[in-house]
């Protein structure tokens, strides 16, 4: 059976750490940096569990700041 795997690239400097992508992700890929902040002082989102990504783009769709690029491949 074909397996869908995905990856996301987050523009950390554009991110405001709103957490909406974390909530939207169905597979628990994303998290907010607990300590690290970006140049504007936000605890930005990062891929805590990248291997779980299915490339569904839910995170990117709800991201208000257009920080997330989504990639997807179907492994036969």
């Amino acid at each position: 059976m074909a397996k869908v795997i995905g990856a996301v690239e987050i523009n950390h400097e554009r991110c405001k750490g709103c957490d909406l992508c974390v909530v939207a992700c169905p597979t628990d890929v994303l998290s907010l940096q607990p300590k690290e902040v970006n140049n504007r002082g936000y605890h930005y989102a990062y891929t805590a569990n990248p291997e779980k990504c299915i490339g569904c783009a839910s995170c990117a769709l709800v991201c208000p700041d257009a920080c997330i690029e989504v990639y997807r491949v179907v492994e036969k």
């Binding site: 990856a7 523009n11 490339g55 783009a57 990117a60 769709l61 257009a66 920080c67 997330i68 690029e69 989504v70 990639y71 997807r72 491949v73």
Partner: peptide
Amino acid sequence: ENKVYCKP
């Protein structure tokens, strides 16, 4: 080629 979503 695998990109499915990016900043408009």
